[in-house]
């Protein structure tokens, strides 16, 4: 750091020309990561598309075993959490630390509510045996005519499960943001981690935007 201009901020790494270049580089790398995330989920979306085209009627019938109200509630919760995340960044850009922390806490709570609702859904499915693959054992009257419903639940659990894992990881990252912002490490001069985690959090919202109609609102 010996070559540092004494005027340059402490968060500027010596291998960057200026803070803006550093910020743009971080952001571009984040989008490269988002690309890998989209491709990870792409594999699962392809599985969904292939099996749905093989079993169109079963998908329509099996989806009726899901609770639309819980799915819609989670959609509302996640969209609201995306708003509070965006507002946390807006607040830190305006150097309003208090509001930023408040918005991050709100985002964290919404994420917790999302996982709570997901837990209620999952535990009900575990109870009645609407489970993936060979663990499927539900033989209720509304499922007696279904042809291979365990395929639907395999895809449902893997896709919503991986999405839920992203929500959980996002909560960890947001908790760290709350700590860093409260401590004063993030300011309007330097809030790169919040912007990056924000992009991650909006991706989680974006994927749910597709999962919701694909699983809860078929036909």
């Amino acid at each position: 750091m010996g070559h540092h201009n004494p005027d340059s901020p402490s968060h500027l790494k010596h291998y960057f020309h200026d803070v803006n270049q550093q910020y743009e580089t971080s952001k571009f790398a984040m989008w490269a990561f988002i690309l890998t995330e989209v491709l990870t989920f792409a594999g699962l979306f392809v599985a969904y598309i292939v099996y749905r085209s093989w079993y169109p009627d079963m998908f329509v019938d099996a989806h009726k075993l899901l609770d639309v109200n819980k799915g819609l509630m989670n959609t509302i919760v996640l969209i609201t959490s995306s708003l509070t995340m965006a507002l946390a960044i807006w607040a830190i850009q305006k150097n309003n630390k208090k509001l930023s922390v408040l918005m991050l806490v709100a985002t964290f709570i919404f994420a917790l509510v999302f996982l709570g609702i997901k837990y209620l859904e999952y535990s009900h499915k575990f109870e009645v045996g609407q489970l993936p693959g060979e663990f499927y054992s539900y033989m209720g009257p509304d499922a007696a005519h279904l042809n291979n419903p365990h395929i639907f639940f395999s895809i449902y659990f893997i896709m919503t499960g991986l999405h839920g894992l992203h929500v959980a990881i996002g909560m960890g990252l947001i908790a760290w943001l709350i700590y860093s912002t409260q401590k004063g490490n993030l300011t309007s001069e330097y809030y790169t981690p919040m912007e990056m985690i924000g992009i991650f959090w909006h991706l989680v919202d974006l994927i749910w935007i597709y999962l919701f109609p694909l699983f809860y609102l078929i036909g």
Partner: peptide
């Protein structure tokens, strides 16, 4: 943003399209 970020995102969707098409 600088349009390079949008390009990266659209590329991921393009790869997804190729993935779906060839699999199907």
């Amino acid at each position: 943003d600088d349009k390079k970020n949008l390009t990266m995102f659209l590329m991921s969707l393009m790869f997804f399209g190729i993935f779906v098409t060839i699999t199907m």
